[in-house]
């Protein structure tokens, strides 16, 4: 039981860590370092990049809601 709880806690920390990282990356203040990439697209490249990260956050959150749910059943 203890190992299962530890595994579940570790999974929680894992997906939350990934989401936080993606949130930090989602604000492309660093975009100018890539210089002019937006001209190749109908929409600015930074916007597409940020929306792509939003999609990733949404998919990871959806996945976590399916997998994380019963983790921690014993913690209350």
């Amino acid at each position: 039981m203890g190992n299962q709880q530890e595994k579940s806690d570790s999974q929680k920390r894992g997906w939350l860590g990934v989401v936080v990282l993606l949130i930090l990356l989602s604000c492309p203040w660093y975009w100018s370092a890539f210089g002019g990439a937006e001209d190749q697209w109908a929409l600015p490249g930074w916007l597409l990049w940020s929306l792509g990260l939003a999609l990733a956050i949404a998919l990871i959150t959806a996945w976590a809601s399916l997998h994380r749910w019963h983790a921690g059943d014993n913690d209350d």
Binding site: L16, L47, A54, I57
Partner: peptide, 28 residues
């Protein structure tokens, strides 16, 4: 302008937030 696209991320993060406390809260 386009910088308000942050609201998309924000509304997704609302659900991420739910996942942190809602499962246990619902059981309680």
């Amino acid at each position: 302008g386009f910088s308000w696209i942050v609201i998309v991320h924000s509304m997704i993060v609302v659900v991420t937030g739910y996942l942190i406390f809602a499962p246990k809260l619902q059981r309680l």
